Amino acid sequence: MYDELIQELLKSLDENLISAGYPKFPGEGYKAHKIDAKNFHEINKSNSDKRIAFVDGGNTEILGSANFSLNLLRICYVVYKNNQKIMSKKFEILAFIQAINDKGEIHYKASFFGLGNSLGLGDISFSSFDHTLMLGVNRAEIGSVANALRRFAELKIAKLISEGKIADVIVLDGNLQATLTNENKYLNELYESCSKNDVILSALSKTTSLFTDNGNLLSVVLMSVSKYASWYYYPIAEISSSNHKAEMFFVRFHKKSKHAFRFEIFNKQKSEAVDAINCLTSNSVDPIFIGYPYGLVEADRIARVSNQERDSLKTIFLVKLRNKNIEKYLNSANAHEILDKISF
């Protein structure tokens, strides 16, 4: 049974690899270009003294129930020049999200409490039926708001880097597409700032789920077609969406890399794309993750919130909330946690 299944799996993947024709984008605003070997360009590694700021964030829920969620957001940037780290900065925020009644509808309102470096996010609110947070037709879970808040905080920090002219190139973890309610507000402010201050704005995705027209993964197809050891692929599509002001590339930064990453640059700066790719290529030689910019590895390490940290903060808050009638709220959402601890 298993051998038959494996043969069918491999056959299906091989057939899709051969027949792939175009990238396939969800929604409107994308005119895909046919996959063509002539769109591969060899990367010519060059030295650059540009300062590159890598931005990433992490978050974890400390306490939560169906109607409130207390989260720690940790955002950082790391600046490299000539492959040497020259500075880094970390921002930590406690985000308290609560369900409220707003004109007869349930909304999730977030308030922020700084742990040293405040970003001035102000109060943020989402409808509990916000389609950018929902899964299926049910009301969004209140904990899902934290991921949106982290994204907004990352964009605010990128703007701080631009305004302070801390770096010549900014690399966000992810992409430049606005997929959340009000995300365009933060992105447009960042675009304006980078244009004003001559700071190149880009983004690199750790993972990608872009398909080809026959259901294969675009990154896998490109890795199979290219004749170059390290390369960038462009053009992929003409993007006219107002929610996605970017030029899109796929990049393999190192000849030994097993990954091709989706790379984007603010569309008004597309003339700077090759230079930005060359800068990132020089930063993608560390064997810890060959072919991936080490600056993003370091930013991820600093921003990541460990389970130990989460549990420590949870203990602190539970001690302070003892005999404060909080347990019945926590019990509304912890049944899975109890079952996970049971050994069968």
Rank of each mutant, 00 (worst) to 15 (best):
E4L: 13
E8C: 03
I18P: 06
S19N: 12
S19E: 14
P26N: 12
E28W: 15
E28P: 05
G29R: 02
G29Q: 03
K34W: 10
D36M: 05
N39H: 15
N39D: 07
S46M: 07
D49E: 14
D49T: 14
R51Y: 13
A53I: 00
V55C: 08
V55I: 15
D56E: 09
G58D: 03
G58N: 02
T60E: 10
E61T: 00
I62C: 09
L63C: 07
G64W: 02
N67L: 12
S69C: 13
L72D: 00
Y77M: 03
Y77H: 13
V79L: 02
N83V: 12
Q84L: 11
K89Y: 00
F91V: 06
F91K: 07
F91P: 05
E92N: 10
A99S: 13
N101I: 09
H107S: 02
Y108H: 02
A110P: 08
F113V: 03
L115F: 11
S118N: 12
I124P: 07
S127W: 00
S128G: 06
S128I: 00
H131S: 14
T132N: 01
M134E: 03
L135C: 05
G136Y: 14
G136A: 00
N138K: 13
N138M: 04
V145H: 09
N147M: 12
F152D: 14
I157M: 08
A158R: 11
A158E: 05
L160I: 04
E163C: 14
K165E: 08
I170Q: 08
L172D: 07
L172Q: 03
L176I: 05
Q177T: 04
L180H: 11
N182W: 12
L190M: 01
E192D: 11
S193K: 05
D198P: 02
L201P: 02
K206A: 08
T207N: 15
T207S: 14
S209C: 04
L210M: 13
L210S: 11
T212N: 02
N214Q: 06
L217H: 10
L218C: 08
S219Q: 01
V221T: 09
S224C: 00
K227C: 05
Y228W: 07
I239Q: 01
H244A: 08
M248R: 11
F253D: 06
K255R: 09
K256E: 12
K258I: 11
K258S: 15
H259K: 15
A260D: 06
A260G: 06
F261T: 09
R262E: 11
F266P: 00
E272P: 03
V274L: 12
D275F: 12
A276R: 10
I277N: 02
N278E: 10
N278D: 07
C279N: 13
C279F: 13
L280F: 05
S284F: 05
F289Q: 14
Y292A: 01
Y294K: 14
G295E: 07
A299H: 07
R301L: 09
I302K: 07
A303F: 10
V305C: 04
S306M: 03
N307W: 09
N307I: 03
E309P: 01
R310M: 08
K314S: 05
K314F: 00
K320H: 13
R322W: 11
K328L: 06
K328V: 09
K328Q: 10
A335H: 05
I338E: 11
I338T: 10
D340F: 15
F344G: 15
